[in-house]
Simulated assay, not measured.
Amino acid sequence: MAIWIDVSTSKHRLMLMDDNKLLKTYPIAVGKILTPTPSGTYTIINKQLNPPPPFGALWMGLSKPHYGIHGTNNPASIGKNRSHGCIRMFNHDVLELSSKVSLGTKVSIHK
């Protein structure tokens, strides 16, 4: 049993997976055209509760420096291409996701 995260930037969705079984789908915001969310496979390397604005309720840093999965103080951006490359989630969703994944969790990002 391996928990991992699958991110589709074109569908604006993050899927929490257990091997090949879908556990939950979350709506997300991704990078703008000029600052796209990078495709690739990364891992969660840190977590910070109540980070400084504008990262919402929680920050989960990825192994690609300066990129992460985080909450937002602009919930209207969810479902759109609005970030500087990070993956934005509703605050309640990022808190729930963080409780289900640990450091070292694989994050696969694709179109």
Rank of each mutant, 00 (worst) to 15 (best):
G85N: 08
T72V: 03
I45L: 00
Y67I: 11
I33E: 14
T35N: 09
P38N: 08
S63D: 11
G68I: 03
L16E: 06
F90T: 09
T37C: 05
G85K: 00
P53L: 04
Q48F: 05
K100T: 11
I78C: 07
P53A: 15
W59G: 02
K32C: 04
I33R: 15
K80S: 04
N74T: 06
N50M: 01
Y67L: 13
H70P: 08
D18N: 15
T37F: 04
S63C: 14
H66D: 15
F55S: 03
I87V: 14
D93S: 13
L97A: 14
I78K: 06
M89D: 14
H84N: 12
R13A: 06
D93I: 07
L49H: 06
P65G: 09
P54C: 11
G71W: 02
I69C: 09
T35W: 06
M60Q: 14
T72K: 04
A57P: 00
N20R: 06
R13N: 14
T35S: 15
I69W: 10
F55Y: 15
H66P: 04
L34I: 11
T43G: 08
N91C: 07
G71I: 01
G40Q: 02
A57T: 05
R13E: 14
P53T: 14
C86N: 04
M15K: 12
P52T: 08
K64G: 12
S98D: 12
D19F: 02
N73D: 04
F55Q: 04
L22F: 02
R88Y: 06
H84Q: 10
L34Y: 14
N50H: 01
S98R: 03
P65L: 06
T43M: 03
Y26C: 08
M17C: 11
